[in-house]
Nucleic acid binder design. Structure first.
Lengths: 107, 107
DNA sequence: CGTGTAAGGAATTCTGACACG
DNA sequence: CGTGTAAGGAATTCTGACACG
């Protein structure tokens, strides 16, 4: 497994700093959310909060956009990656169950 | 070496979120800076920015304070750790130089 | 010493909308 | 479709100061 995933995935960065980090305008960042490319959390009062993983995803999105790829297509690509991850997760889960069923009896 | 230290040490978290993460008030966080226990960076307009490492340090500071330790003593402890780190870094550096001087001649 | 608070101002963020193309 | 902008309001952050103890 990785080291500590929380630093990468914890949503703690406000939109102004994400803008600095990515070079995107706040308008662009909010629009990509509207198009379901990115999913910030919210503070109690409603401000958006992003993770480093989100920042990296936004940088990828920006690169795709520069190539002229539309947000629709970018979303499909991201879903493809997500499904691949789900597939791997299921595989791992299954392996775990098999171990629970048969692996432990050997011990 | 670690994985990617940048997620842990990059200063991107504003004080309000640090307050949520640590349970400390903004007043306390600013005071610990005044007492040289913590060193945030600033945005262009002057807002403080903290790293996850800073957040962890603040949590340690909070624990010490609950034990009644004064900020002066806490600072000394933190300097002790820093000096220990420096000592290790010098040791590593020296090792590198020795390799450069003698290690490569063997090759 | 460490922390709370009210004060005033500046910077941040939010939403919904109009504009262009 | 993707992005800019002006609009108005609410929330955030900053500093320096007074208060208590």
């Amino acid at each position: 497994m990785g080291e500590d995933p929380s630093y990468k995935t914890r949503k703690v960065i406000t939109i102004g700093i994400v803008s600095d980090l990515t070079g995107l305008t706040e308008r662009q960042i909010r629009y990509y959310e509207e198009r379901k490319l990115i999913f910030p959390e919210r503070t109690e009062k409603g401000s958006r909060k992003y993770s480093f993983a989100d920042v990296e995803r936004l940088i990828e999105i920006a690169e795709k956009r520069e190539e002229g790829v539309q947000t629709n297509e970018i979303r499909r690509d991201l879903e493809k990656v997500k499904k691949e991850d789900n597939r791997k997760a299921r595989k791992q889960m299954l392996k775990g169950q098999i171990n629970a069923q048969f692996g432990l009896r050997k011990g």
